[in-house]
Design a protein around this nucleic acid. Sequence first.
RNA 1: GAGGGUGUAGCUCAGUUGGCAGAGCACCGGAUUUUUAAUCCUGUGGCCGUGGGUUCGAGUCCCACCACCCUCACCA
Length: 498
Amino acid sequence: MTPAARCVSIIPCPRAGRQGFQVGGGTVEDRFEQERMATVEALRAKGVDPYGSRFDGVAPVAQIAGAYEEGRVVRVAGRMTAMRNFGKAAFADLRDSSGKIQLYMKQDMLDPASVEVLQVLDLGDVIGVDGKLGKSRTGEITVFASGLRMLSKALLTPPEKWHGLRDVEIRYRQRYVDLWANPDVMATFRRRTQIIGAIRRYLDERGFLEVETPMMQAIPGGAAARPFVTHHNTLDLALYMRVSPELYLKRLLVGGMEKVYEINRNFRNEGISTRHNPEFTMMEVYQAYADFNIMMDLTEGLIGSAIDLLHPSRKISYGLHELDFTSPWRRATYDQLLKEHAGVGLDDEAGLRSKAKELGRDPNGEIAAVADRLFESCVEHQLIQPTFVTHYPITLCPLTKASATDPRFAERFEMYIAGMECANAYTELNDPIDQEHRFRNQVEQAEGQLRVVDEDFVRALKVGMPPAGGLGIGIDRIVMVLTNSPCIRDVILFPLMR
RNA sequence: GAGGGUGUAGCUCAGUUGGCAGAGCACCGGAUUUUUAAUCCUGUGGCCGUGGGUUCGAGUCCCACCACCCUCACCA
């Protein structure tokens, strides 16, 4: 009996597998599972292996349907998701990762072993099929089976055939059901892989080197988020899951990797929402001798390459919005957008404070902070079309280089799509003394929170880091936009569940 | 962390004013050799999220807890 003996059907307990769920005294055997177990035994008794092995020469069903040829001998395999039984014959739907195809299984067209399989076939079983391609009376492309092999007998009942698996909690927890029961889900994750592939290709073609830097760090740095804490036993060492790879990628700039990037997980011990998962995929890229303007072009280029792959028209529906990614994307200053959506500019201190008060936000404190509250309240969610926001007030960006031409502003942009922050880029600070001061200020201001100066990083800057542009892109959010997914959990295969 | 919502059969969902626990799909048995949510007949299936309380009587009302969803807060 498995540890989750109580959890007998595919769905019944969302927390299957968790410790402590096992019921003491007398396991509850599910009726459906018992029936299918009996089938397994019956097959074995007849010398048929209910859990088959290697099955060579399988073609994707979409490919077979796409290159239809009357009478062609084909071999397919997949999960049986529907069956229409007529006694001595039956139609069934066979689904693989490419799509589905109809099977026609008639007893007098099958060898005896296959008839045994047909007689015990249940929804959800994984089967292998040999047959000839043809069309049914209604014109549907159909494999007319001559041989059936049971490749894996399903013991648990699949979701309902018409409505499918809707319960979002079960979908996230039992993605292994969700993926085949809801074809859109499979399509979304296929696209996710394609998007990341396009981004990699774009960077690789331009001479960027993909690297992997530590996810377990003794000093978590590169972002202000709270880290997850863990512990190394034999070293008796506190370690932190990284909140950002930034400080390591910059060390690589120092080491002479002039164009470097990483696509991998970051971990932030913060709230969860439709746009935040505790572990999420970030792409960070650094380019020596560049600045944030070059990063802006890079952002548009690499996201554009992914869009061209999936949406060549560059027009994308996202929820109720029609997004237009035709180049060039809008570039606007922070001040400009504040005036546009909040009706006050950065130079109008009294106006900013009264507007904040009007909106019920804190009107006190440093004026840039007040402005930023207004930016959050009034501007961010209005940035539906892809928009680069530039010229952030320098005090909002303590780790960015100030503009050489106007030191009130930082050399930074954020890029928004559908009201979501999707990218963030700087002209990176490479003055070690300046950096050290800013680190120490941060530590002083981080009351109670863990914050330690990464002395080795300062040392690295002292060795000399070339001036550089740095860019971070939230991959999950880009995938959300490009797959019309309203929730970050819809684009993460196994999102965190309590 | 705050507010709102949801939780009923394996799945998708009804459940009236507090009065016998329901449907469709799935499943068991029967009929059916071109259907596609196949059809027809028949039957099985319930810890109503968990634990308390009110009541003659609770799926329904009250309290607490658990999980999930939404909004907000946190998140340079």
